[in-house]
Amino acid sequence: MFKAKRRTVVTVTAALAVLLAGALTVTLLTSGNGKASDGNSVTDGNSVTYTAGHRPLAPDITGTSLTGTAIKLSSYRGKTVVLNFWGSWCAPCRGEAGVLALLDKQYGAKGVAFLGDDVGDTPANALAFTRGAGISYPSISDQGYAVVAQLSQVVPVSDTPTTVVIDKTGHVAGTIIGAVNYGEMTTLLHDAEVTQ
């Protein structure tokens, strides 16, 4: 009887150890890239779209623009806002700037406002770039990533550039991490039109 009990203990231990080792292997080998679509959002590559009704409310971001004027996100209520996190030191940001400048021209009159958030940068470097790239919308001077941290409490802003689309009611409709392209941006802007 004692032997039988002992064998159970050994078996249980063996199973436990194998399970632990297996779990450890799985967690160590998978790079945590699993992205899926739950009921609230759809993930497609580097973009996340939040379905209307499940959109997280964006915090009321405030800051000072590169040229020294005050900016407040809540004053944009009633417009769809494209919030682009960028820096003049960041090559992918410079690369996507043309697309954003074009979209600003096309959608500016259709109730879409563009706003930049310039991170890890100096105003001199940033303004030299926006002038050259033909970007006329304002950017918050956010050298210390304060706005990034604020918005990160709601949606991931894990890299530079990241673009966040906020709907007319101030809720986040979607994010694109990394450089944007024209197609995914227009899709996201049309999705953002649908609000509740």
Partner: peptide, 22 residues
């Protein structure tokens, strides 16, 4: 200079297996 503790601001980020930027 200043920085906020977000992955975008960090130069190197080595998270544990069950840690995400948020």
């Amino acid at each position: 200079q200043s920085f906020s503790d977000t992955t975008a601001a960090l130069d190197e980020f080595h998270p544990g297996r069950l840690v995400s930027g948020s």
